[in-house]
């Protein structure tokens, strides 16, 4: 007669057959869930392939072809890339595009100042918040036309306003020296409302207790700003810098409307404007694609650097 120990009686033996049966039961149980998961995952994966991977691959190939955008492509290797290195207008347009970025810190500084002002309990706060936001929701084309008028050298609003304080304004859009600053001023004005809104939310989210503690320690207003407000709104600053650089690198509409031939001495032509002209006016779609890819890579590099810098300066207030 076989005898068993206490342990043998209470611990069931888990055989291979049991494991197999369990897996089978499990598989059956989750099969439906797995199928649904696959279905839901399929949508973004297919979307990613169709709208990102394929166009990206196609663009890379197109950039290595001689293609006018309507006929057949001929593979020419890296010729388009060597061509752009020798194209003075590519470098001029790239320089113009980089120059436009000057507007980003200026816009952010003004936005932060406005956000700080609007976060205080001043009269007409809601009115000002609305007024500053109106340009953001207005059509860029309409704004560009209005500013074109405002910049008129003879009777434009800007020069009339300057004349009131005794300054004779330049002929903004006709002067190679002033055409780019004119576009920067307009871009800053247009983007002010959006940046201010984000900064306002960030400023209002700073715990009051930090300011109170700093005040008790005798910190001045400037100290409170540099040591509390500025670090606390830095994630918003980071977000705005990244998005503004990406948006700024794509500047096109206002240039095409306000200076449709690229401005005096080509002083306003941005890289995207040049890409568009090469693609659709000069039938150099392959070359235009190469330039667009170079611009994309440059923006990517700048963004990666920004992320690195941001990570290095990261902090928490635990």
């Amino acid at each position: 007669m076989a005898t068993t120990t206490e342990a043998e009686r209470t611990t069931p033996v888990w055989t291979k057959a049991d494991a197999k049966a369990s897996r089978k039961a499990n598989n059956k149980l989750h099969r439906k869930e797995h199928a649904w998961a696959a279905a839901f995952m399929a949508a973004p994966v297919i979307g990613w392939v169709a709208f990102l991977l394929f166009p990206m691959g196609f663009s890379i190939y197109a950039s290595m072809t001689n293609w006018n955008g309507i006929g057949n492509m001929t593979f020419i290797g890296l010729d388009n890339y060597t061509r752009l290195l020798q194209d003075p207008y590519f470098w001029k347009a790239l320089w113009n595009t980089v120059f436009y970025m000057i507007g980003i810190p200026i816009g952010l500084a003004i936005s932060l100042a406005l956000a700080l002002a609007l976060s205080r309990n001043i009269r007409g706060r809601t009115f000002f918040r609305t007024v500053y936001y109106i340009p953001v929701i207005s059509s860029l084309a309409a704004i560009a036309i209005l500013w074109q008028w405002a910049y008129n050298g003879d009777f434009g609003l800007v020069n009339q306003a300057l004349a009131l304080v005794g300054i004779q304004g330049p002929n903004w859009l006709m002067d190679p020296l002033w055409a780019k600053p004119a576009l920067i001023i307009m871009a800053v004005w247009k983007g002010l409302g959006y940046s201010t809104l984000l900064y306002l939310a960030a400023v209002q989210a700073v715990p009051r207790s930090l300011y109170e503690a700093a005040s008790l320690d005798g910190a001045t207003s400037w100290k409170r700003f540099t040591k509390i407000t500025w670090p606390m709104v830095r994630p918003v600053t980071f977000f705005l810098v990244v998005t503004n650089i990406i948006a700024g690198s794509m500047i096109f509409t206002e240039i095409n409307i306000m200076t449709p031939t690229g401005g005096p001495s080509w002083s306003t032509a941005s890289l995207v404007w040049y890409v568009w002209n090469q693609a659709f006016r000069n039938l150099n779609m392959g070359y235009a694609t190469a330039m667009a890819l170079v611009l994309g890579i440059l923006v990517l590099i700048v963004t990666i650097i920004q992320f690195r810098i941001n990570r290095a300066n990261d902090f928490s207030i635990d």
């Binding site: 050298g153 003879d154 859009l173 006709m174």
Partner: peptide, 10 residues
């Protein structure tokens, strides 16, 4: 008209 006055639209 001078350059300042002579933008196309003007």
């Amino acid at each position: 008209p001078s350059a300042e006055q002579a933008q196309t639209l003007d």
